[in-house]
Amino acid sequence: MKDMNAADITGEYREAVLTFHSGSSRKVFYTEIESPMPDGRLIVSRTDLNGNITHANAPFVDMSGYTRGELIGAPHCILRHPDMPAAGFQDLWNTLKQKKKWHGYVKNLRKDGGFYWVYATVIPNIRNGEVSGYTSVRRRPSKTKVKEAEALYRTLE
């Protein structure tokens, strides 16, 4: 996956190199600027079996800061924030492989280096008994739940 472009970043930023489940890595730039999810907004996306995005609704496009063209075909980990512990995503993949629904609080990285917190639900799309991809819905979490998640994730880094 392409590294983030420093020219896209708004405000002061730090950098990190993330290594993903697939073994690939990406240099990311991130800021302390939060773009909270507006009330009522639900982000919907679908991916194929490899985690590449095949569907993005308008709220997803808006919140991510990417264009729809940039999102479609990109791996979902394009949203991965360096503050998210790898253990959380390992749990996600382990749960989905068992054809079960996964829930979790996730800090997502925007194209401009900012972030937004979501409560994410992911389910495997089962067709004729086989998993054909994944559907994810992300919605605005409560502030108290975000604080709890932040505290927990710091212990998992």
């Binding site: 639900l42 919907v44 679908r46 569907h55 629904k101 829930h103 639900t121 992911v122 389910i123 799309n125 067709r127 559907t135 994810s136 819905v137």
Partner: peptide
């Protein structure tokens, strides 16, 4: 339709 059903299932949580 299957996609919308998946979506409704995802929301039921």
């Amino acid at each position: 339709t299957e996609f919308m059903i998946d979506l409704m299932e995802t929301l039921e949580s």
